[in-house]
């Protein structure tokens, strides 16, 4: 069994969001970087669990980014995985990134490719689906449970209005949502071991991007809260009805 987990570097969830260069670039000044939460908490941890159950499993991590991504990759390796591959490129176009991952996945012949359900920076929810199409494999988006029986996977996923269980024969690509696994904290052995695990750097394949970011902006700030006395709930209802016209 060979598993590839896609890891993205994202700003910390508490990071202040600001832009530079006439609002065309994200201001990375003072930003702390983390592993994208759904990549780490759900996709990676579930893959690590599968390897713990079957130690013959080969588990590789992949990230598309420049050298400043390496600390994030080492952090991910501290949770598990045999080695990591970094595609030495930087792009905000999901098709470009997915094409890089698909090229590595094709060459490596993986049975499973896991991604998180979305990154918390560009919120595209696109990489998994694009990789699946480029590999011509089934894609299960928003998976909340994953069980493996030989080459047969049983997967629960979010669908409109509920959840369903599907059976799919490997190989496949999935995007991981809450429920797939529980967040883990890396232990000292993992952190020490991660330092010496192989981190291969490969150059990107030539791909045209499909989109560009023209500009960024911040939503207008709220005017300020109107406080209503706890003993005067009728007043809140009046405001919501007459002023906000929300009820």
């Amino acid at each position: 069994m060979k598993i590839l987990v896609c890891i993205s570097k994202t700003p910390d969830t508490t990071a202040k969001i600001a832009f530079t260069d006439s609002n065309t670039k994200f201001d990375t000044n003072g930003v702390q970087w983390i592993i994208n939460p759904s990549d780490e908490w759900y996709a990676l941890v579930r893959a690590v669990e599968l390897k713990e159950k079957d130690p013959s499993t080969v588990l590789h991590l992949i990230s598309v980014g420049q050298a400043d991504t390496d600390p994030i990759i080492r952090k991910a390796l501290a949770l598990g995985g045999d080695e990591a591959i970094r595609v030495n490129a930087d792009s905000h176009d999901s098709f470009y990134i997915a094409s890089q991952i698909a090229a590595v996945a094709k060459e490596g012949g993986y049975d499973l490719v896991f991604t998180g359900k979305e990154t918390i920076d560009y919120n595209g929810s696109s990489i998994g689906g694009m990789v699946a199409e480029l590999l011509d494999q089934p894609y299960i988006a928003l998976a909340t449970k994953f069980e493996l029986n030989g080459v047969q996977a049983s997967i629960s996923r979010e669908i409109e209005g509920g959840e369903e269980v599907a059976e799919v024969t490997l190989p496949l690509v999935l995007s991981a949502s809450k429920g797939l696994a529980e967040q883990r904290i890396p232990n000292m052995k993992g952190i020490m071991g991660a330092r010496t695990k192989p981190l291969k750097v490969v150059e990107p394949v030539a791909v045209d991007t499909l989109t560009t970011i023209s500009s960024f902006g911040l939503p207008p700030a709220k005017a300020g809260v109107k406080l209503v006395d706890a003993d005067n709930v009728d007043e809140l209802v009046r405001l919501l009805h007459e002023e906000a016209k929300a009820i």
Binding site: F95, S126, I127, G128, G129, E133, Y139, A141
Partner: peptide, 9 residues
């Protein structure tokens, strides 16, 4: 979310 990215690719 399941289809649009596939179609894009």
């Amino acid at each position: 979310k399941a289809i649009a990215p596939r179609l894009s690719a």
